[in-house]
Amino acid sequence: MPINPIYHHTEEKLKEELLWVQAAQKNPKRFAPLYDKYYEQIFRYIYQRMDDKELAFDVTSQVFLKAMNNIERYEYRGVPFSSWLYRIAKSEVYQSFRDKKAKRTVSIESFQLEGMIEEWEEDRTEDNRKVLLSIIGGLKEEEVQLVEMRYFEKRSYREIGEILELTENNAKVKTHRIINKMKKIYRKSYGQL
């Protein structure tokens, strides 16, 4: 499965990013390079989970404002700065759902669904797609997050772990368990059809 290449940095890139962060900690105006680098990524992460585009832009601005206000508290842990931004974004998205009393959105491409069905060695029929959508709709929030990040956003287990504050291995194990659970439900439903 292809994964998001932006997240994976070389040591040099990480060091360069750390210098940007240190500069921004001293002078907030030096936050600009970080903002430019991660604005689109963070927006897409938020928009993936929200129905309203304008609200997604607002929440994105809020995320960067919070990051800027709290950059003095940031501690480098050998991972890209974006993992910290994602955590803020996750918190802001759920805060927005609570404020607006809105339902969480799951954005899925048809080809992504078909890819999952293929992995399970099933036929790519319209019925199978409907069953799979129904299974995703019945998952718990934590389960949806893992499936979404791994299969629809193509993130590595390491990145998933850093965003969800899990170890890479734990993220992997949890995702496999959810997929197995989905397969069981899928086969059970397929038998009933």
Binding site: E40, Y47, D51, R104, T105, S107, I108, L113, G137
Partner: peptide, 16 residues
């Protein structure tokens, strides 16, 4: 399906 608002093939926003 009731737990989430599932959007299938939503038009993508361009980077620009």
């Amino acid at each position: 399906m009731d737990n989430y608002n599932i959007k299938l093939d939503r038009p993508k926003l361009t980077s620009e």
